[in-house]
Computed example of a mutant assay.
Amino acid sequence: MDNHFKLNTVELGDCKEVIHRLRDKSVNLALCSPPYPDKRGDKYPTVSEADFPTWTARWMDSLVGKLADDGSVLMVIDKHVKNGVMSDFLLITQLVLRQLGWTQHMTHIWFKHDGLPLGHRWWPHHCYEEILWFSRTTHPFCDPWAAGSPSTNLAVRNYDQSDWTNGKTGKKEGTARMRDVLVVPVGGNAKGVDHPAKYPQTLCESLIKTFCPEDGTVLDCFAGSGTTLLAARATGRNFYGIDVMKKYVNLARRRLSEGGPQAA
């Protein structure tokens, strides 16, 4: 009996176990927002900050061999600050993954310009989350033009004291590369979806277009309400979804069955 994970479905279970059912090298992009440590424990299982690095290393280790040779893992995550001190769980996690053979690439930023005024009231408004980028290679798939924007000024200009140009280069039209700061409003989150940790489908679509080839497959190890999976389908990619809670597996399945580009 074939026990492989069926393409374009959502499975219930611990991702460390379910990932083993994927075919080797079948995932081009694992895009997820893992449960933040010590947060929303009444909504879904989580772990402590002390355990987060080891816990992350375990589910990432299960991806080894399942990722395509040029595949990537993107994690949307935020830091914690308590009593004025930034916790170190995210720093430790990154160092642990590097020690275990993961290559870390440039971190991207999700800028939430319409987000709630988070952070200490006497400090600057915290309005971004990080998107950590890992792979098993120094040259993962990346097409920064796929989610780029039209531009009439691609040439590097007016840098008189720079090696880039003499400052006299003319304008050039075309598609500008996607930037590593993604400006996506929180207001783009789905309305009426019963999940405490949503993110916008447009954010996922930009990342999928950039880091997953057109004929590729996206995995979300913490599928939640299914936004990543909807984005994969909207961009013409295949997908696998996993969640440990039956409530959210059913929610993701229902949203996928309802379909529609605005379903996220």
Rank of each mutant, 00 (worst) to 15 (best):
V96F: 13
K112M: 14
D78N: 15
I109P: 02
A50S: 11
E130C: 03
G119C: 09
D143K: 07
S135V: 02
M60S: 05
K112R: 14
E130G: 01
N83P: 01
H139V: 09
Q94Y: 04
Y128C: 07
P140G: 08
L132H: 05
W110A: 02
P144C: 03
P124C: 08
S149R: 15
P144S: 08
L91K: 11
A50K: 15
F89Y: 15
H105M: 08
L132P: 01
S135A: 11
G119T: 07
R58H: 12
L63V: 06
T56Y: 09
V73T: 01
W55G: 06
Y128W: 14
D61H: 13
L116S: 10
G148A: 12
L91R: 13
E129W: 09
H108I: 00
C127G: 00
S72D: 06
A57S: 15
K79S: 13
G148R: 07
K82T: 14
S72R: 02
K79W: 14
W123F: 11
W123H: 11
W133N: 02
P150I: 09
H80W: 12
L74S: 02
E130D: 12
G115V: 05
L100N: 13
D51W: 10
W110G: 00
W55D: 04
Y128H: 14
M86N: 00
L91S: 11
W110Y: 02
T137L: 01
H126S: 05
A68V: 03
C127T: 00
D88T: 14
P144Q: 02
L74H: 03
T56M: 15
K82V: 15
D78L: 05
L116E: 07
A68E: 04
D114R: 00
K112N: 08
H125S: 01
K79F: 13
H108D: 04
E129A: 02
Y128V: 00
P53T: 09
V76F: 04
W110F: 06
I109S: 06
G101F: 07
G148M: 12
H80V: 05
F52T: 07
L91H: 14
P140I: 04
T54H: 13
E129N: 06
Q104R: 11
G101Y: 05
L132D: 02
C127I: 04
V76M: 08
H113V: 00
P117D: 03
H126R: 08
M75D: 00
G115H: 03
K79A: 13
L118F: 13
H80R: 13
